[in-house]
């Protein structure tokens, strides 16, 4: 038996919004620890991972691990039927269920909606992601700042370079109409309302596809802050964490390299 209840549908709606433009379908792996997912996008440029820890749920029961193959567009359609303040309960049989049940209940518990989502058999390759990568540079910024930087720059072109030196990050773009750049310095004061922090072990300069950096802005409502981790020649790791360590959405984006 798998049963998980979220107090408000907002949490899962936001998480799905953050991943559904990158992934068409994925296995939602349920274990005693929580609900998680990982999948590559179709062109295999980006790996998206998501975790909702059991503590994110008001009720969480998973007697034995199960994997629910879900079409992201279908689950999003069903969740559109939940008001943001409605609770969401997901119920599935852990013995080869062919559908999962979704129950939405309003705050006064006098309106209850039931939906059944057909599950799919998805044959996906699971990749192992190192837990404690030692990155050359880590930058944390308000997620609203992230959105502004990459929605602006990706309009100019699709080749975006991130260069991080001591206390400064430079984001630049090359496009057909011209180019542009933006410098962001670490904020001085620790009690600044919207801090930017930059930790550099070694300066790093890497190039990434702007279209993806812009797509990741769909995760901005999840978190007030975002962390970007870079190591030369390796994928960029971008993390949006849910409040109270309830979970996260992480993207790993392959770099563009000079030939």
């Amino acid at each position: 038996m798998f049963e998980a209840k979220l107090t408000e549908s907002t949490t899962i709606k936001r998480v799905l919004d953050a991943i559904k433009d990158l992934i068409q379908q994925a296995n939602f792996d349920c274990s005693a620890d929580g609900l998680s997912l990982q999948a590559m996008d179709t062109p295999h440029v980006c790996l998206t991972t998501m975790t909702l820890r059991s503590q994110a749920f008001e009720v969480y029961r998973c007697d034995r691990p199960l994997s629910m193959g879900i079409n992201l567009s279908s689950i999003s359609k069903i969740l559109k039927c939940a008001a943001s303040k409605d609770s969401v309960k997901i119920v599935a049989d852990d013995e080869g269920a062919d559908c999962a049940e979704f129950i939405f209940e309003n705050e006064s518990a006098d309106r209850i909606a039931h939906f059944e989502l057909k599950l799919m058999d998805i044959d996906s390759e699971h990749l192992s992601i190192p837990e404690d990568s030692d990155y050359q540079a880590i930058i944390s910024m308000p997620s609203a700042e992230y959105r502004r930087i990459f929605s602006d720059l990706s309009i100019i072109g699709d080749t975006i370079t991130i260069e991080i030196n001591k206390n400064t990050a430079c984001f630049s773009v090359e496009g057909d109409i011209g180019n542009g750049s933006l410098n962001l310095a670490q904020t001085d004061s620790a009690d600044e309302k919207n801090p930017v922090t930059i930790n550099v072990k070694e300066p790093v300069k890497m190039t990434f596809p702007g279209k993806y950096l812009n797509t990741f802005t769909k995760a901005v409502p999840i978190s007030e802050f975002v962390t970007l981790c870079l190591t030369d020649g390796n994928p960029l790791a971008i993390e949006f964490s849910l409040p109270d360590e309830a979970g996260f959405v992480r993207y790993f984006l392959a770099p563009k390299i000079d030939q």
């Binding site: 590559m40 295999h44 440029v45 980006c46 790996l47 390759e125 699971h126 990749l127 192992s128 992601i129 080749t159 190039t207 596809p209 390796n234 994928p235 790993f252 984006l253 392959a254 770099p255 563009k256 390299i257 000079d258 030939q259």
Partner: peptide
């Protein structure tokens, strides 16, 4: 010319 790498290159199958 810049070449877009594939993400599958960086992670081993679990």
């Amino acid at each position: 010319k810049r070449h877009q790498m594939l993400i599958s290159r960086f992670f081993a199958p679990a």
